[in-house]
Computed example of a mutant assay.
Amino acid sequence: MLHLSGGDDGSTAERIRYGAALAAHGGAHLTGLFTRLPLPLASHYVPPALIAGHRAEVDRAAAVARQLFEDSLRRHGIAGEWIEAEGSALDSIQLYGRSTDLVILGQPVAAKADPVVGPDHGVGQLTQDLVFALGRPVIRLPQGAAPVQRFGRLLIGWNGKKEATRAVHDALPLLRLADAVIVACVGTAGLKTTPGSELARHLARHDVAVDLVVSPERDGRAGPELLQLAAQHDADLVVMGAYGYMRWRERIFGGATEAVLRQARIPVLFSH
C-alpha cells in the first residue's frame, strides 16, 4: 500500500513511480491510499472561503494523484485499487494497511502554514508511530531525492536482535528477488558467533545468498555507519529493525533508528 495526501508538496509523482515499480518487480497488487485530514474542532472560526479553498485544493490534489496512480498501473501492467479516506493519516493507514504486506510512506515535508489544518498536516511523527502501531513493515522514502526504481542490491542492518530478525523476515520476498544481498553487521560485539554467519546460513536455506560485511560500531554511531555502508555498496534499499531501545530513549539520547530517519537518502524498510 502506498500512502498519499494533499500535503505531499510535489513528491506524489515520485512516490507513485516507486510504488508501481516495486509492485511490478514483485508481481504485487498495489493499493493507493489518499488521506484527507478532518477539519479541526475550531473550524467554525475559520472563514468559509478558506475552508472552501482548502477543500478544493485537496480535491485537486486527490484527482491529480489518482490519475498518476491509474496511469502507472496501466503502464506497468499491475493490479491495484484507489482508496480515499477522511480522518487522521495514522488511523486510516492502520485500518487499510493491516490487510497488506507492506506500506510505503514519504518523508514528512517541512512545516507549512496551512490556515485550516495546521502547520505540519499532523504527520511529523507518522513513520515512527506506524512502525510501532501498524504491525506491518514500512518503507520510508527519502525527502528531496527521487528514490531509485531499481531493487537489485539490498543491504540488511544486522545486530542479532529481535527487531532486526523481524525486519529480515518481513523483507524476505524482496530479498529473494534481489540480485545481491549484503548483511552489514554493525554493533555486534556481544555476539558469541561470527557476526551474521547464522543469518547467512538461514537465508541460504531460503535461496538467498548474502555477502557479509562486519563493521564495528563507533561511539554509538550505528545508524550513520549503516548508511555509509549502504552508500559504499550502492544499495537500493536498506532493511533494518527499528527501535531496539525504548522510543523515548532513542528520541532523547539518540539511536540508530532516529539517525537513519533523519539522514537516509535512499529508501529504508523498517520493522519493529
Rank of each mutant, 00 (worst) to 15 (best):
L105E: 06
L154S: 06
A79K: 06
L50W: 13
I78M: 00
Q107N: 12
L155D: 02
I182C: 10
K161P: 15
R60E: 12
W158V: 03
I83E: 02
A62E: 00
L154T: 07
A79V: 14
V183L: 13
R176L: 10
R55Y: 13
A62I: 06
R153Q: 06
F132M: 15
V64Q: 00
G118E: 08
Q149Y: 06
R136S: 04
V168W: 02
P108W: 09
L141K: 03
A56K: 15
G135A: 01
A178P: 12
S92L: 00
T165P: 15
S92G: 11
E70T: 12
A61S: 07
A79T: 06
V138T: 05
L95G: 08
A178C: 11
G77C: 12
L126A: 00
L105Q: 01
D59M: 00
L141V: 04
Y96H: 13
L174Y: 12
L50P: 13
G124D: 04
A178D: 00
V131H: 04
A56H: 15
L172T: 14
A171E: 02
S92I: 10
K161E: 12
A133W: 07
L154H: 08
G80C: 02
R66Y: 11
V186K: 11
Q67N: 06
I83S: 10
L50F: 13
L90G: 01
G160Q: 10
A63Y: 04
H54A: 05
A164T: 08
A85T: 14
E84D: 05
V123W: 10
G53I: 11
L102V: 11
E81G: 05
L130Y: 09
V117S: 01
Q107A: 08
A89K: 07
D120H: 05
L50I: 08
S99K: 07
D91L: 15
L177S: 06
G187F: 15
A111W: 14
R136F: 06
V131A: 01
A79S: 10
I156G: 07
T165M: 14
Q107C: 10
H54E: 01
A180V: 15
K161H: 14
D179Y: 13
A111D: 14
R60K: 12
L134V: 07
I78A: 03
R140P: 15
A146V: 12
E57M: 15
R74L: 08
V131S: 05
H76W: 15
G160K: 05
G118S: 13
V186Q: 09
R150I: 08
A113F: 05
S72E: 10
D71F: 13
A110G: 12
G118K: 15
V103Q: 00
E163D: 01
A62K: 00
K161C: 15
G87E: 03
H54N: 05
A178Q: 01
V103G: 07
W158S: 00
R55V: 09
A167Y: 02
Q128G: 10
F69Q: 02
G187N: 09
Q128T: 13
V103C: 10
Q125Y: 09
E163Y: 14
L68I: 05
L177Y: 02
W158Q: 03
A167I: 01
C185M: 09
A63W: 13
R176Y: 15
R136Q: 04
D129Q: 09
I93Y: 02
A65L: 03
G135M: 03
L105D: 00
V103S: 01
A61C: 08
C185H: 07
R166T: 08
R60L: 12
V117E: 01
S72G: 09
L177H: 03
V183P: 05
E81D: 13
G97V: 04
Q125G: 15
